[in-house]
């Protein structure tokens, strides 16, 4: 019987880190379903889903990851799941929007927006941040399918922006697709 895992690994970035991690999966007979990786401040992190035919346990995986030679040990979190999802970052929900927020850098900016979304049952699908001089930029990709009134949400965002001295913009994800993805037909973007 096969076993399926969600695996999260983190280490200081260096050439070959992806090769080392995927070699562990391959050597244990694992089939890589999907993965996402990112580098932040010189640290590499990856989340992946894999399926193993043999009796590969969580303990075996942890041991093999710990044996990878690196400046900092490879830290891994492993959770067994019932099924793996292939291509999970495929089509986004129809009500996917992007909220951009810019403010003078200070503590608690991401939390403020995180709380705002959570209190309105808004799921954050993706988040990137950037800092330029003292300007902190946050870009949240959010699913607004649980939001009843766009007018109210826009008004609440405006109030939040004024209160927190943030420049907040809410735009439908389709706008970014339309303006930046030359090869994608508009009918595809709006789902005709």
């Amino acid at each position: 019987m096969s076993r399926k895992y969600v695996i999260s690994v983190m280490s200081k970035d260096r050439p070959g880190i992806i090769a080392d991690i995927t070699t562990v999966i391959y050597d244990l007979g694992g089939d890589l379903a999907d993965l996402n990786q990112s580098i932040l401040g010189g640290y590499f992190t990856m989340i992946l889903m894999a399926e193993f035919d043999g009796p590969v346990t969580r303990k075996i995986l942890l041991t093999r990851f710990s044996e990878i030679q690196s400046e900092t040990p490879v830290a891994a979190l492993i959770k067994e799941v019932k099924e793996v999802m292939y291509g999970s970052h495929g089509r986004l929900p129809d009500d996917t929007f992007v909220v951009t927020a810019q403010a003078d850098n200070r503590k608690g900016l991401v939390k403020t927006l995180g709380d705002f979304f959570y209190s309105r049952n808004i799921n954050v699908l993706d988040l990137v941040t950037a800092i330029d001089k003292n300007c902190y930029t946050m870009i949240f990709q959010v699913d607004l399918s649980q939001v009843d009134s766009m007018k109210s949400l826009r008004s609440e965002l405006t109030s939040l922006g004024e209160r927190e001295e943030m420049e907040l913009v809410l735009q439908h994800n389709d706008i970014y697709m339309a303006t930046n993805e030359v090869g994608t037909a508009l009918e595809t973007i709006i789902g005709d």
């Binding site: 913009v169 970014y176 303006t179």
Partner: peptide
Amino acid sequence: MLRSDQIMATVEMVQK
């Protein structure tokens, strides 16, 4: 994946 440069360029066009 979000491309922050593209998104901010579009925000600039739409809002500013």
